[in-house]
């Protein structure tokens, strides 16, 4: 750390090098948690979204029920049920599952993943069902079977339509991750709460953490704008 920054930090009552490190560790935890849950959530959501569009109700029904349950209840409640509920199961402490669920990180990861997967499933499903009929008919005319149609025509065009809605989901997930701090995870919000309670300075502690979230959001918005221009290149007017 450059000397003048260290010097300025030492004059400051709250934002010392130590608290900055606490915020940094919190930021790493937040990014870690949100990134993993989004990646796993997306991987789960794509097949679920396809199943959700299948006509057979025995296939699409369970997926509908899952998305309904997880979109119909607050994430905080889901986290409470997974974190505290699992610990109440008789004898779970003796199984190997406890190695995973003893730490607060994995129950939070599970709750966040299930939640974001439910929303993402519905976003992708919406994009799939709005595929223009003409595209599918043309694919059929070319003799493509269902699998090839999905892979070459429906999913790529659905991805283009889903990306804007999905960027919202990513940002919501980042902000929703703040509730991880209620199950003792020291994420960005957890760090802010600890520092607030140490110095009784709510404005300093929370405004700083708000700026951290805004910086992360800015990076996400920027990345998605790049992705959108890339995916929607064909829609741009041809100009000289």
């Amino acid at each position: 750390m450059p000397d003048f920054i260290a010097e300025w930090l030492n004059q400051n009552e709250i934002f010392t090098a130590m608290t900055i490190m606490e915020y940094w560790d919190g930021m790493v935890t937040t990014v870690h948690l949100v990134f993993l849950s989004l990646v796993i959530g997306l991987l789960v959501a794509v097949p679920l979204a396809i199943l959700r569009t299948v006509r057979n109700p025995f296939v699409s029904g369970p997926v509908w029920l899952y998305t309904y349950l997880f979109r119909g209840t607050p994430l905080l409640i889901q986290l409470y049920i997974i974190y505290y509920g699992l610990a109440q199961i008789e004898g779970i402490q003796e199984t190997f599952w406890w190695e995973i669920f003893r730490e607060p990180f994995y129950p939070a990861l599970l709750a966040f993943t299930l939640n974001t997967a439910a929303y993402t499933t519905e976003i992708i499903r919406g994009a799939i069902v709005s595929t223009p009929n003409g595209e599918i008919e043309a694919a059929k005319a070319y003799g493509m079977n269902w699998f090839m149609r999905m892979r070459r025509i429906v999913l790529p065009s659905a991805a283009r339509r889903a990306v804007q809605a999905y960027s919202n989901e990513v940002i919501f997930m980042l902000h929703a991750s703040a509730i991880a701090s209620v199950v003792t995870i020291v994420d960005l919000t957890g760090a802010a709460r600890n520092i607030y309670s140490r110095f009784y300075a709510p404005f300093d502690a929370f405004i700083f953490v708000a700026l951290c979230y805004m910086a992360l959001t800015f990076i996400l918005v920027f990345a998605f704008r790049k992705l959108e221009t890339h995916l929607l290149k064909h829609q741009r007017p041809v100009s000289g």
């Binding site: 610990a87 406890w98 003893r102 607060p104 003792t184």
Partner: peptide
Amino acid sequence: VLDLEGQR
């Protein structure tokens, strides 16, 4: 106390 009971 819930976490103490749950052995966390």
